[in-house]
Write a protein that binds this DNA or RNA. Sequence first.
DNA 1: TCAAAAGTGTTCCAACTACACCCATGT
DNA 2: ACATGGGTGTAGTTGGAACACTTTTGA
Lengths: 229, 229
Amino acid sequence: MIHSYNSQDKALLAVDCIIFGFDKEELKILLIKRDFEPQKGKWSLMGGFLKRSEDLDQAANRILHHLTGINNVYMEQLYSFSKVNRDPVERTVSVAYYALINTEEHNEELTQQYSAKWFNISEAPELIFDHDKMVKKAISRLRYRTSTMPVGFELLPQKFTMRQLQKMYEAILGEKLDKRNFINKINALDILHKTNEKDMESSKKGSFLYMFDEEKYKRKAADGFSFKL
Amino acid sequence: MIHSYNSQDKALLAVDCIIFGFDKEELKILLIKRDFEPQKGKWSLMGGFLKRSEDLDQAANRILHHLTGINNVYMEQLYSFSKVNRDPVERTVSVAYYALINTEEHNEELTQQYSAKWFNISEAPELIFDHDKMVKKAISRLRYRTSTMPVGFELLPQKFTMRQLQKMYEAILGEKLDKRNFINKINALDILHKTNEKDMESSKKGSFLYMFDEEKYKRKAADGFSFKL
DNA sequence: TCAAAAGTGTTCCAACTACACCCATGT
DNA sequence: ACATGGGTGTAGTTGGAACACTTTTGA
Protein backbone atom coordinates (compact mmCIF):
# COMPACT_ATOMS: atom_id res chain seq x y z
CA MET A 1 0.00 0.00 0.00
CA ILE A 2 1.78 3.07 -1.24
CA HIS A 3 0.64 6.36 0.08
CA SER A 4 3.20 8.79 -1.18
CA TYR A 5 1.56 11.59 -3.05
CA ASN A 6 4.06 11.78 -5.85
CA SER A 7 3.73 8.22 -7.00
CA GLN A 8 0.09 8.85 -7.92
CA ASP A 9 -1.35 9.38 -11.37
CA LYS A 10 -2.57 12.83 -12.18
CA ALA A 11 -5.45 13.73 -14.40
CA LEU A 12 -6.76 16.72 -16.22
CA LEU A 13 -9.75 18.22 -14.50
CA ALA A 14 -12.31 19.78 -16.76
CA VAL A 15 -15.43 21.70 -15.88
CA ASP A 16 -18.45 21.60 -18.17
CA CYS A 17 -21.48 23.83 -17.72
CA ILE A 18 -25.06 23.07 -18.63
CA ILE A 19 -26.67 26.47 -19.07
CA PHE A 20 -30.44 26.46 -18.87
CA GLY A 21 -32.58 29.25 -20.16
CA PHE A 22 -36.28 29.72 -20.67
CA ASP A 23 -37.90 31.59 -23.49
CA LYS A 24 -41.68 31.94 -23.22
CA GLU A 25 -42.45 28.36 -24.08
CA GLU A 26 -39.53 26.03 -23.91
CA LEU A 27 -36.66 25.09 -21.69
CA LYS A 28 -33.43 25.73 -23.53
CA ILE A 29 -29.74 24.99 -23.25
CA LEU A 30 -26.85 27.05 -24.45
CA LEU A 31 -24.31 25.31 -26.64
CA ILE A 32 -21.23 26.32 -28.54
CA LYS A 33 -19.64 25.04 -31.66
CA ARG A 34 -16.35 23.58 -30.62
CA ASP A 35 -13.49 25.45 -32.27
CA PHE A 36 -10.63 23.11 -31.54
CA GLU A 37 -9.79 19.47 -31.98
CA PRO A 38 -10.91 16.83 -31.29
CA GLN A 39 -14.46 16.97 -32.64
CA LYS A 40 -14.02 20.51 -33.94
CA GLY A 41 -17.27 21.77 -35.36
CA LYS A 42 -19.54 19.64 -33.21
CA TRP A 43 -21.79 21.18 -30.58
CA SER A 44 -20.63 21.08 -27.02
CA LEU A 45 -21.35 22.34 -23.54
CA MET A 46 -19.34 25.26 -22.26
CA GLY A 47 -16.15 23.79 -20.91
CA GLY A 48 -12.66 24.50 -19.72
CA PHE A 49 -9.98 23.26 -17.39
CA LEU A 50 -9.48 23.77 -13.70
CA LYS A 51 -6.53 25.96 -12.79
CA ARG A 52 -4.20 25.40 -9.92
CA SER A 53 -5.23 28.63 -8.26
CA GLU A 54 -9.00 28.19 -8.17
CA ASP A 55 -11.59 25.76 -6.87
CA LEU A 56 -14.27 24.16 -9.01
CA ASP A 57 -16.96 26.74 -8.29
CA GLN A 58 -14.61 29.48 -9.32
CA ALA A 59 -13.58 27.61 -12.44
CA ALA A 60 -17.19 27.12 -13.45
CA ASN A 61 -17.90 30.81 -13.05
CA ARG A 62 -14.75 31.83 -14.87
CA ILE A 63 -15.50 29.53 -17.78
CA LEU A 64 -19.07 30.69 -18.05
CA HIS A 65 -17.99 34.29 -17.95
CA HIS A 66 -15.25 33.76 -20.43
CA LEU A 67 -17.39 32.02 -22.99
CA THR A 68 -20.53 34.09 -22.62
CA GLY A 69 -19.79 37.30 -20.77
CA ILE A 70 -22.29 36.23 -18.12
CA ASN A 71 -21.59 36.82 -14.45
CA ASN A 72 -23.28 36.27 -11.13
CA VAL A 73 -25.75 33.58 -11.94
CA TYR A 74 -27.03 30.64 -10.01
CA MET A 75 -24.69 27.69 -10.50
CA GLU A 76 -24.51 24.37 -8.78
CA GLN A 77 -22.21 21.40 -9.00
CA LEU A 78 -23.90 18.40 -10.55
CA TYR A 79 -21.70 15.35 -10.86
CA SER A 80 -18.24 14.21 -11.91
CA PHE A 81 -17.84 12.15 -15.04
CA SER A 82 -14.81 9.96 -15.28
CA LYS A 83 -15.04 7.12 -17.78
CA VAL A 84 -11.51 6.29 -18.79
CA ASN A 85 -11.89 7.14 -22.46
CA ARG A 86 -14.52 9.82 -22.28
CA ASP A 87 -12.07 12.26 -23.83
CA PRO A 88 -9.99 10.55 -26.50
CA VAL A 89 -7.01 12.89 -26.22
CA GLU A 90 -6.16 12.79 -22.54
CA ARG A 91 -7.37 11.18 -19.37
CA THR A 92 -9.79 13.86 -18.28
CA VAL A 93 -12.29 13.87 -15.47
CA SER A 94 -15.02 16.41 -15.95
CA VAL A 95 -17.05 18.02 -13.22
CA ALA A 96 -20.40 19.19 -14.53
CA TYR A 97 -22.10 22.32 -13.27
CA TYR A 98 -25.47 23.68 -14.22
CA ALA A 99 -26.65 27.26 -14.29
CA LEU A 100 -29.96 29.03 -14.73
CA ILE A 101 -30.03 32.26 -16.64
CA ASN A 102 -32.51 34.72 -17.97
CA THR A 103 -32.45 34.52 -21.74
CA GLU A 104 -33.88 37.98 -22.30
CA GLU A 105 -31.07 39.72 -20.51
CA HIS A 106 -28.39 37.72 -22.18
CA ASN A 107 -29.43 37.05 -25.69
CA GLU A 108 -27.76 39.52 -28.01
CA GLU A 109 -24.25 39.41 -26.68
CA LEU A 110 -24.31 35.67 -26.62
CA THR A 111 -25.31 34.87 -30.10
CA GLN A 112 -23.25 37.65 -31.63
CA GLN A 113 -19.98 38.13 -29.77
CA TYR A 114 -19.70 34.53 -28.78
CA SER A 115 -20.65 31.72 -31.05
CA ALA A 116 -23.11 30.34 -28.55
CA LYS A 117 -26.60 29.32 -29.48
CA TRP A 118 -29.77 28.43 -27.61
CA PHE A 119 -31.48 25.14 -28.38
CA ASN A 120 -34.79 23.83 -27.19
CA ILE A 121 -34.10 20.87 -24.98
CA SER A 122 -36.06 18.64 -27.27
CA GLU A 123 -34.30 19.81 -30.41
CA ALA A 124 -30.69 19.97 -29.27
CA PRO A 125 -28.13 18.35 -31.54
CA GLU A 126 -26.02 15.45 -30.46
CA LEU A 127 -23.14 16.61 -28.30
CA ILE A 128 -19.52 15.58 -28.03
CA PHE A 129 -18.15 13.03 -25.60
CA ASP A 130 -20.53 12.29 -22.75
CA HIS A 131 -22.16 15.71 -22.75
CA ASP A 132 -25.57 14.28 -23.56
CA LYS A 133 -25.43 12.26 -20.37
CA MET A 134 -24.55 15.41 -18.47
CA VAL A 135 -27.55 17.23 -19.84
CA LYS A 136 -29.85 14.38 -18.94
CA LYS A 137 -28.58 14.36 -15.40
CA ALA A 138 -28.88 18.13 -15.16
CA ILE A 139 -32.52 18.04 -16.18
CA SER A 140 -33.33 15.49 -13.58
CA ARG A 141 -31.51 17.51 -10.94
CA LEU A 142 -33.38 20.61 -11.99
CA ARG A 143 -36.68 18.76 -11.61
CA TYR A 144 -35.70 17.68 -8.17
CA ARG A 145 -34.64 21.16 -7.16
CA THR A 146 -38.09 22.28 -8.15
CA SER A 147 -39.60 20.39 -5.27
CA THR A 148 -37.11 21.78 -2.82
CA MET A 149 -37.14 25.47 -3.36
CA PRO A 150 -38.85 27.88 -5.67
CA VAL A 151 -36.38 27.43 -8.44
CA GLY A 152 -36.40 29.25 -11.63
CA PHE A 153 -36.99 32.82 -10.79
CA GLU A 154 -33.49 32.96 -12.15
CA LEU A 155 -34.88 31.95 -15.50
CA LEU A 156 -37.44 34.73 -15.81
CA PRO A 157 -37.15 38.49 -16.20
CA GLN A 158 -37.62 40.51 -13.06
CA LYS A 159 -41.29 41.06 -13.75
CA PHE A 160 -43.29 38.20 -15.10
CA THR A 161 -46.84 36.99 -15.40
CA MET A 162 -48.34 34.02 -13.63
CA ARG A 163 -48.73 32.39 -16.97
CA GLN A 164 -45.05 32.72 -17.75
CA LEU A 165 -44.16 31.26 -14.38
CA GLN A 166 -46.49 28.37 -14.95
CA LYS A 167 -45.13 27.71 -18.42
CA MET A 168 -41.64 27.70 -17.01
CA TYR A 169 -42.56 25.04 -14.48
CA GLU A 170 -44.32 23.06 -17.14
CA ALA A 171 -41.22 23.20 -19.31
CA ILE A 172 -39.00 22.03 -16.47
CA LEU A 173 -41.29 19.28 -15.30
CA GLY A 174 -42.35 18.22 -18.76
CA GLU A 175 -46.03 18.14 -17.90
CA LYS A 176 -49.09 20.38 -18.00
CA LEU A 177 -50.29 21.90 -14.77
CA ASP A 178 -53.74 23.07 -13.80
CA LYS A 179 -53.98 26.84 -13.96
CA ARG A 180 -56.06 27.38 -10.84
CA ASN A 181 -54.24 24.89 -8.69
CA PHE A 182 -50.95 26.34 -9.79
CA ILE A 183 -51.90 29.88 -8.83
CA ASN A 184 -53.31 28.76 -5.51
CA LYS A 185 -50.13 26.98 -4.61
CA ILE A 186 -47.87 29.79 -5.67
CA ASN A 187 -49.93 32.24 -3.67
CA ALA A 188 -49.88 29.97 -0.67
CA LEU A 189 -46.09 30.21 -0.71
CA ASP A 190 -46.42 33.92 -0.28
CA ILE A 191 -43.17 34.93 -1.91
CA LEU A 192 -44.49 37.00 -4.79
CA HIS A 193 -45.36 40.65 -4.98
CA LYS A 194 -48.14 41.62 -7.37
CA THR A 195 -47.36 44.88 -9.13
CA ASN A 196 -50.14 46.93 -10.65
CA GLU A 197 -48.57 46.89 -14.03
CA LYS A 198 -49.88 44.69 -16.74
CA ASP A 199 -48.17 42.89 -19.53
CA MET A 200 -50.16 43.72 -22.67
CA GLU A 201 -48.21 41.61 -25.11
CA SER A 202 -49.65 38.24 -24.48
CA SER A 203 -53.34 39.09 -24.56
CA LYS A 204 -55.87 41.78 -25.20
CA LYS A 205 -57.00 41.86 -21.64
CA GLY A 206 -53.46 42.09 -20.29
CA SER A 207 -52.15 40.15 -17.33
CA PHE A 208 -50.69 41.38 -14.10
CA LEU A 209 -46.97 41.34 -13.58
CA TYR A 210 -45.47 39.84 -10.46
CA MET A 211 -42.11 40.16 -8.83
CA PHE A 212 -40.21 37.82 -6.63
CA ASP A 213 -40.11 39.18 -3.07
CA GLU A 214 -36.66 38.43 -1.69
CA GLU A 215 -37.48 39.54 1.84
CA LYS A 216 -40.41 37.21 2.21
CA TYR A 217 -38.45 34.49 0.53
CA LYS A 218 -35.57 34.70 2.95
CA ARG A 219 -37.86 34.54 5.92
CA LYS A 220 -39.47 31.39 4.58
CA ALA A 221 -36.24 29.80 3.45
CA ALA A 222 -34.89 29.93 6.98
CA ASP A 223 -37.24 27.21 8.15
CA GLY A 224 -36.85 25.12 5.05
CA PHE A 225 -39.10 25.03 2.04
CA SER A 226 -40.87 22.01 0.84
CA PHE A 227 -42.86 22.58 -2.13
CA LYS A 228 -44.83 20.53 -4.55
CA LEU A 229 -46.56 21.35 -7.78
CA MET B 1 -7.92 31.55 -25.27
CA ILE B 2 -5.65 28.53 -25.24
CA HIS B 3 -7.22 25.19 -25.72
CA SER B 4 -4.32 22.86 -26.05
CA TYR B 5 -4.59 20.07 -23.59
CA ASN B 6 -0.98 19.99 -22.57
CA SER B 7 -0.77 23.56 -21.38
CA GLN B 8 -3.29 22.80 -18.64
CA ASP B 9 -2.63 22.26 -14.98
CA LYS B 10 -3.12 18.78 -13.67
CA ALA B 11 -4.29 17.81 -10.25
CA LEU B 12 -4.35 14.80 -8.04
CA LEU B 13 -7.72 13.20 -7.88
CA ALA B 14 -8.62 11.55 -4.63
CA VAL B 15 -11.65 9.51 -3.69
CA ASP B 16 -12.96 9.52 -0.13
CA CYS B 17 -15.67 7.19 1.10
CA ILE B 18 -18.21 7.82 3.79
CA ILE B 19 -19.22 4.38 5.00
CA PHE B 20 -22.48 4.25 6.87
CA GLY B 21 -23.48 1.41 9.07
CA PHE B 22 -26.29 0.78 11.50
CA ASP B 23 -26.05 -1.13 14.72
CA LYS B 24 -29.35 -1.67 16.55
CA GLU B 25 -29.65 1.88 17.75
CA GLU B 26 -27.39 4.36 16.04
CA LEU B 27 -26.24 5.40 12.63
CA LYS B 28 -22.50 4.92 12.40
CA ILE B 29 -19.59 5.77 10.19
CA LEU B 30 -16.45 3.84 9.60
CA LEU B 31 -13.18 5.68 10.10
CA ILE B 32 -9.53 4.79 10.00
CA LYS B 33 -6.55 6.15 11.78
CA ARG B 34 -4.41 7.73 9.14
CA ASP B 35 -1.08 5.94 8.93
CA PHE B 36 0.86 8.40 6.80
CA GLU B 37 1.67 12.08 6.75
CA PRO B 38 0.26 14.67 6.82
CA GLN B 39 -1.93 14.39 9.90
CA LYS B 40 -0.76 10.90 10.66
CA GLY B 41 -2.67 9.51 13.62
CA LYS B 42 -5.82 11.56 13.09
CA TRP B 43 -9.07 9.94 12.09
CA SER B 44 -10.03 10.05 8.48
CA LEU B 45 -12.46 8.74 5.93
CA MET B 46 -11.37 5.88 3.72
CA GLY B 47 -9.49 7.44 0.90
CA GLY B 48 -7.16 6.85 -1.99
CA PHE B 49 -6.20 8.16 -5.38
CA LEU B 50 -7.75 7.65 -8.77
CA LYS B 51 -5.68 5.54 -11.14
CA ARG B 52 -5.26 6.16 -14.80
CA SER B 53 -6.94 2.88 -15.67
CA GLU B 54 -10.16 3.18 -13.73
CA ASP B 55 -13.12 5.51 -13.41
CA LEU B 56 -14.27 7.04 -10.14
CA ASP B 57 -16.84 4.37 -9.33
CA GLN B 58 -14.21 1.71 -9.76
CA ALA B 59 -11.74 3.66 -7.66
CA ALA B 60 -14.26 4.03 -4.86
CA ASN B 61 -14.92 0.31 -4.85
CA ARG B 62 -11.25 -0.58 -5.03
CA ILE B 63 -10.41 1.71 -2.14
CA LEU B 64 -13.21 0.43 0.00
CA HIS B 65 -12.24 -3.13 -0.73
CA HIS B 66 -8.62 -2.48 -0.12
CA LEU B 67 -9.11 -0.81 3.24
CA THR B 68 -11.88 -2.99 4.59
CA GLY B 69 -12.14 -6.18 2.57
CA ILE B 70 -15.69 -5.23 1.70
CA ASN B 71 -17.07 -5.82 -1.77
CA ASN B 72 -20.31 -5.36 -3.64
CA VAL B 73 -22.04 -2.75 -1.58
CA TYR B 74 -24.25 0.13 -2.47
CA MET B 75 -22.12 3.17 -3.29
CA GLU B 76 -23.03 6.48 -4.81
CA GLN B 77 -21.07 9.51 -5.83
CA LEU B 78 -21.77 12.46 -3.59
CA TYR B 79 -19.84 15.61 -4.47
CA SER B 80 -16.41 16.87 -5.45
CA PHE B 81 -14.45 18.97 -3.01
CA SER B 82 -11.86 21.28 -4.43
CA LYS B 83 -10.80 24.12 -2.15
CA VAL B 84 -7.30 25.08 -3.21
CA ASN B 85 -5.62 24.25 0.08
CA ARG B 86 -7.84 21.48 1.32
CA ASP B 87 -4.87 19.15 1.27
CA PRO B 88 -1.73 20.95 2.41
CA VAL B 89 0.71 18.72 0.55
CA GLU B 90 -0.56 18.82 -3.00
CA ARG B 91 -3.35 20.36 -4.98
CA THR B 92 -5.89 17.57 -4.64
CA VAL B 93 -9.49 17.44 -5.65
CA SER B 94 -11.45 14.82 -3.81
CA VAL B 95 -14.58 13.10 -5.02
CA ALA B 96 -16.64 11.84 -2.12
CA TYR B 97 -18.65 8.65 -2.30
CA TYR B 98 -20.91 7.17 0.29
CA ALA B 99 -21.75 3.56 0.95
CA LEU B 100 -24.22 1.67 3.09
CA ILE B 101 -23.13 -1.54 4.68
CA ASN B 102 -24.38 -4.09 7.10
CA THR B 103 -22.29 -3.88 10.24
CA GLU B 104 -23.07 -7.38 11.45
CA GLU B 105 -21.65 -9.04 8.39
CA HIS B 106 -18.56 -6.92 8.37
CA ASN B 107 -17.56 -6.27 11.88
CA GLU B 108 -14.82 -8.68 12.89
CA GLU B 109 -12.59 -8.42 9.89
CA LEU B 110 -12.81 -4.67 9.94
CA THR B 111 -11.79 -3.91 13.42
CA GLN B 112 -9.15 -6.62 13.54
CA GLN B 113 -7.40 -6.97 10.21
CA TYR B 114 -7.82 -3.36 9.27
CA SER B 115 -7.49 -0.57 11.74
CA ALA B 116 -10.94 0.71 10.99
CA LYS B 117 -13.43 1.61 13.68
CA TRP B 118 -17.13 2.38 13.82
CA PHE B 119 -18.26 5.60 15.45
CA ASN B 120 -21.72 6.78 16.26
CA ILE B 121 -22.46 9.75 14.06
CA SER B 122 -22.95 11.92 17.08
CA GLU B 123 -19.73 10.85 18.73
CA ALA B 124 -17.31 10.81 15.83
CA PRO B 125 -13.98 12.55 16.36
CA GLU B 126 -12.91 15.52 14.35
CA LEU B 127 -11.61 14.43 10.96
CA ILE B 128 -8.73 15.59 8.79
CA PHE B 129 -9.01 18.16 6.04
CA ASP B 130 -12.59 18.82 4.94
CA HIS B 131 -13.82 15.34 5.77
CA ASP B 132 -16.30 16.66 8.31
CA LYS B 133 -17.99 18.64 5.57
CA MET B 134 -18.15 15.51 3.48
CA VAL B 135 -19.86 13.59 6.23
CA LYS B 136 -22.39 16.34 6.74
CA LYS B 137 -23.24 16.37 3.08
CA ALA B 138 -23.48 12.60 2.99
CA ILE B 139 -25.99 12.57 5.82
CA SER B 140 -28.18 15.06 4.11
CA ARG B 141 -27.99 13.06 0.90
CA LEU B 142 -28.89 9.93 2.76
CA ARG B 143 -31.93 11.64 4.24
CA TYR B 144 -33.01 12.71 0.84
CA ARG B 145 -32.53 9.27 -0.62
CA THR B 146 -34.85 8.03 2.09
CA SER B 147 -37.76 9.82 0.48
CA THR B 148 -36.91 8.52 -2.93
CA MET B 149 -36.50 4.85 -2.50
CA PRO B 150 -36.64 2.39 0.34
CA VAL B 151 -33.07 2.96 1.33
CA GLY B 152 -31.28 1.17 3.97
CA PHE B 153 -32.11 -2.44 3.57
CA GLU B 154 -28.42 -2.41 2.79
CA LEU B 155 -27.81 -1.43 6.39
CA LEU B 156 -29.67 -4.31 7.98
CA PRO B 157 -29.08 -8.04 8.07
CA GLN B 158 -31.07 -10.09 5.62
CA LYS B 159 -33.75 -10.82 8.18
CA PHE B 160 -34.83 -8.04 10.47
CA THR B 161 -37.70 -7.01 12.69
CA MET B 162 -40.02 -4.11 12.07
CA ARG B 163 -38.62 -2.48 15.12
CA GLN B 164 -35.09 -2.63 13.76
CA LEU B 165 -36.21 -1.16 10.49
CA GLN B 166 -37.99 1.64 12.28
CA LYS B 167 -34.99 2.39 14.45
CA MET B 168 -32.83 2.55 11.39
CA TYR B 169 -35.09 5.13 9.81
CA GLU B 170 -35.20 7.07 13.04
CA ALA B 171 -31.42 7.08 13.16
CA ILE B 172 -31.15 8.33 9.59
CA LEU B 173 -33.81 10.97 9.90
CA GLY B 174 -32.88 11.99 13.40
CA GLU B 175 -36.45 11.90 14.68
CA LYS B 176 -38.85 9.53 16.39
CA LEU B 177 -41.55 7.91 14.31
CA ASP B 178 -44.93 6.57 15.38
CA LYS B 179 -44.86 2.77 15.57
CA ARG B 180 -48.27 2.12 14.07
CA ASN B 181 -48.01 4.67 11.32
CA PHE B 182 -44.61 3.38 10.42
CA ILE B 183 -45.78 -0.18 10.05
CA ASN B 184 -48.81 0.86 8.05
CA LYS B 185 -46.70 2.78 5.59
CA ILE B 186 -44.11 0.08 5.18
CA ASN B 187 -46.82 -2.48 4.60
CA ALA B 188 -48.51 -0.21 2.10
CA LEU B 189 -45.32 -0.27 0.05
CA ASP B 190 -45.68 -4.02 -0.20
CA ILE B 191 -42.02 -4.85 -0.62
CA LEU B 192 -41.49 -6.97 2.48
CA HIS B 193 -41.95 -10.65 3.03
CA LYS B 194 -42.94 -11.73 6.53
CA THR B 195 -41.19 -14.93 7.51
CA ASN B 196 -42.59 -17.12 10.23
CA GLU B 197 -39.43 -16.98 12.22
CA LYS B 198 -39.16 -14.83 15.25
CA ASP B 199 -36.27 -12.95 16.73
CA MET B 200 -36.20 -13.86 20.41
CA GLU B 201 -33.35 -11.66 21.46
CA SER B 202 -35.06 -8.38 21.87
CA SER B 203 -38.08 -9.44 23.88
CA LYS B 204 -39.75 -12.27 25.67
CA LYS B 205 -42.62 -12.45 23.25
CA GLY B 206 -40.31 -12.45 20.24
CA SER B 207 -40.92 -10.45 17.10
CA PHE B 208 -41.40 -11.59 13.55
CA LEU B 209 -38.56 -11.35 11.10
CA TYR B 210 -39.10 -9.80 7.70
CA MET B 211 -37.15 -9.98 4.50
CA PHE B 212 -36.86 -7.57 1.68
CA ASP B 213 -38.68 -8.94 -1.40
CA GLU B 214 -36.56 -8.08 -4.41
CA GLU B 215 -39.13 -9.23 -6.93
CA LYS B 216 -41.87 -7.04 -5.60
CA TYR B 217 -39.41 -4.21 -5.24
CA LYS B 218 -38.31 -4.34 -8.83
CA ARG B 219 -41.86 -4.30 -10.07
CA LYS B 220 -42.58 -1.19 -8.01
CA ALA B 221 -39.32 0.52 -8.80
CA ALA B 222 -40.12 0.43 -12.50
CA ASP B 223 -42.81 3.06 -12.15
CA GLY B 224 -40.88 5.18 -9.71
CA PHE B 225 -41.10 5.16 -5.98
CA SER B 226 -42.07 8.10 -3.95
CA PHE B 227 -42.08 7.46 -0.36
CA LYS B 228 -42.50 9.44 2.77
CA LEU B 229 -42.19 8.62 6.40
C1' DT C 1 -69.62 39.73 -32.33
C1' DC C 2 -66.19 36.76 -31.90
C1' DA C 3 -61.78 35.00 -30.66
C1' DA C 4 -58.11 34.65 -27.17
C1' DA C 5 -56.20 34.78 -22.89
C1' DA C 6 -57.06 36.22 -17.82
C1' DG C 7 -59.02 35.49 -13.65
C1' DT C 8 -61.42 33.14 -10.00
C1' DG C 9 -63.71 28.76 -5.70
C1' DT C 10 -65.60 24.64 -4.46
C1' DT C 11 -66.17 19.81 -3.87
C1' DC C 12 -64.29 15.31 -3.36
C1' DC C 13 -61.09 12.02 -2.07
C1' DA C 14 -56.74 10.22 -0.54
C1' DA C 15 -53.19 10.46 2.57
C1' DC C 16 -51.30 11.68 6.92
C1' DT C 17 -51.63 12.25 12.01
C1' DA C 18 -52.72 11.30 16.49
C1' DC C 19 -53.80 8.16 19.64
C1' DA C 20 -54.44 3.49 23.66
C1' DC C 21 -55.07 -1.02 24.76
C1' DC C 22 -54.33 -6.10 24.90
C1' DC C 23 -50.92 -10.00 24.16
C1' DA C 24 -47.25 -13.27 25.02
C1' DT C 25 -43.59 -14.55 27.63
C1' DG C 26 -39.56 -14.89 30.91
C1' DT C 27 -38.27 -13.84 35.47
C1' DA D 1 -47.80 -11.30 39.24
C1' DC D 2 -45.46 -8.21 36.86
C1' DA D 3 -42.45 -6.06 33.68
C1' DT D 4 -41.03 -5.78 28.90
C1' DG D 5 -41.51 -5.13 24.24
C1' DG D 6 -44.89 -6.77 20.32
C1' DG D 7 -48.74 -6.12 17.85
C1' DT D 8 -53.01 -3.95 16.14
C1' DG D 9 -57.29 -0.06 14.08
C1' DT D 10 -59.89 4.21 13.81
C1' DA D 11 -61.47 8.88 13.65
C1' DG D 12 -60.37 13.43 12.35
C1' DT D 13 -57.91 16.53 9.68
C1' DT D 14 -55.35 18.25 5.87
C1' DG D 15 -53.70 18.81 1.45
C1' DG D 16 -54.03 17.71 -3.44
C1' DA D 17 -56.80 17.04 -7.68
C1' DA D 18 -60.47 17.81 -10.61
C1' DC D 19 -63.35 20.89 -12.59
C1' DA D 20 -66.25 25.52 -15.82
C1' DC D 21 -67.68 29.88 -16.34
C1' DT D 22 -67.24 35.02 -16.68
C1' DT D 23 -64.36 39.05 -18.02
C1' DT D 24 -61.87 42.13 -21.06
C1' DT D 25 -60.73 43.97 -25.27
C1' DG D 26 -58.62 44.11 -29.96
C1' DA D 27 -59.60 42.75 -34.47
